[in-house]
Amino acid sequence: MKDGDENEQVRELQARLRQLDLFDRAPTGFYGSITGKSVAAFQERRGLPVTSTVDAATWELLLSLTKEPTADELKPSTTNKLDTPDPRCMTGRVLCISKESRTLAWMIDGKVVSSFDVRFGSENTPTREGEFKVEWKAREWTSTIYHTPMPYSMFFSRGQAVHYSADFAARGYAGASHGCVNVRDRAKLAALFDQVKPGDKVVVHW
């Protein structure tokens, strides 16, 4: 495998490199410069010739050091890799939100049930950090300040909420929220909305 290749074997390569913390994003199936650098790092670490391409020796060694990727590893539910959970997230029912990895993990008794890419507020309207509780929920809501739709809102801190954002879905990280935690996967958030109850813990951390 080499630069420019695009196939399912490349996706498997990326998933296996990710198991070794050498590939920090969701597998794409495309062999570009980031994949090349990850392969080079693997080769250097293991004493192989550093070529940034995958020959038989590199592939066989990688296979021996990793397990066969699961379907979720090959096509993960989040683009961003989940952060190590904050210790406050390890007990009970928790929306565990990491600013560093830009992810939300819905956790029950320390286990991740589902996960999402999220977006936060700008410097002028930052998302507050700390430990909170889901105060109330609204399946359909429009911001009383900014007059924008906030479907599947789960409010946790004085008007700040986890909610679906059409802008995030369309523009990604080119934009920012007004302090809320934006989610771009509407269908998955709808399922989460039905599971989360008022009083469930919310942890926003770096």
Rank of each mutant, 00 (worst) to 15 (best):
residue 33 S to M: 03
residue 34 I to D: 03
residue 34 I to H: 03
residue 34 I to M: 03
residue 34 I to S: 06
residue 35 T to C: 10
residue 35 T to Q: 07
residue 36 G to I: 06
residue 36 G to N: 09
residue 37 K to G: 13
residue 37 K to A: 12
residue 38 S to V: 00
residue 41 A to R: 02
residue 41 A to P: 00
residue 41 A to N: 03
residue 42 F to K: 00
residue 43 Q to P: 01
residue 44 E to C: 00
residue 45 R to H: 00
residue 46 R to V: 05
residue 46 R to M: 06
residue 47 G to V: 10
residue 47 G to P: 01
residue 48 L to S: 03
residue 48 L to M: 04
residue 50 V to K: 00
residue 50 V to I: 03
residue 52 S to R: 02
residue 53 T to G: 01
residue 53 T to Q: 07
residue 54 V to A: 08
residue 55 D to R: 04
residue 56 A to N: 06
residue 56 A to Y: 01
residue 57 A to G: 01
residue 58 T to S: 08
residue 58 T to R: 04
residue 59 W to E: 09
residue 60 E to D: 15
residue 60 E to F: 07
residue 60 E to P: 07
residue 60 E to H: 13
residue 61 L to T: 04
residue 61 L to Y: 01
residue 62 L to Y: 02
residue 62 L to M: 05
residue 62 L to N: 06
residue 63 L to A: 04
residue 64 S to H: 02
residue 65 L to H: 03
residue 68 E to N: 10
residue 68 E to L: 04
residue 69 P to Y: 11
residue 70 T to Y: 02
residue 70 T to E: 02
residue 71 A to T: 13
residue 71 A to H: 06
residue 72 D to Q: 11
residue 72 D to H: 05
residue 72 D to T: 14
residue 73 E to M: 10
residue 74 L to V: 15
residue 75 K to D: 14
residue 75 K to R: 15
residue 76 P to D: 12
residue 77 S to Q: 10
residue 78 T to F: 10
residue 80 N to F: 12
residue 81 K to T: 03
residue 82 L to W: 01
residue 82 L to A: 11
residue 82 L to F: 05
residue 83 D to C: 14
residue 83 D to N: 13
residue 83 D to L: 06
residue 84 T to E: 13
residue 85 P to A: 13
residue 86 D to W: 05
residue 87 P to Q: 09
residue 87 P to E: 09
residue 88 R to K: 15
residue 90 M to K: 14
residue 90 M to I: 06
residue 92 G to S: 11
residue 92 G to E: 11
residue 92 G to Q: 09
residue 94 V to Q: 14
residue 94 V to P: 14
residue 95 L to D: 10
residue 96 C to W: 04
residue 97 I to S: 09
residue 98 S to P: 05
residue 98 S to G: 10
residue 98 S to M: 08
residue 99 K to I: 12
residue 100 E to M: 08
residue 100 E to S: 15
residue 100 E to T: 12
residue 102 R to Q: 13
residue 102 R to G: 10
residue 102 R to V: 07
residue 103 T to F: 11
residue 104 L to R: 06
residue 104 L to F: 11
residue 106 W to G: 08
residue 106 W to Y: 15
residue 106 W to S: 07
residue 107 M to C: 15
residue 108 I to T: 13
residue 108 I to V: 15
residue 109 D to C: 05
residue 110 G to M: 12
residue 111 K to P: 12
residue 111 K to V: 15
residue 112 V to A: 11
residue 113 V to R: 15
residue 113 V to M: 14
residue 114 S to R: 10
residue 114 S to Q: 13
residue 114 S to T: 12
residue 115 S to I: 01
residue 115 S to T: 04
residue 115 S to V: 02
residue 115 S to D: 14
residue 115 S to C: 08
residue 115 S to G: 09
residue 116 F to S: 05
residue 116 F to Q: 09
residue 117 D to H: 11
residue 118 V to M: 08
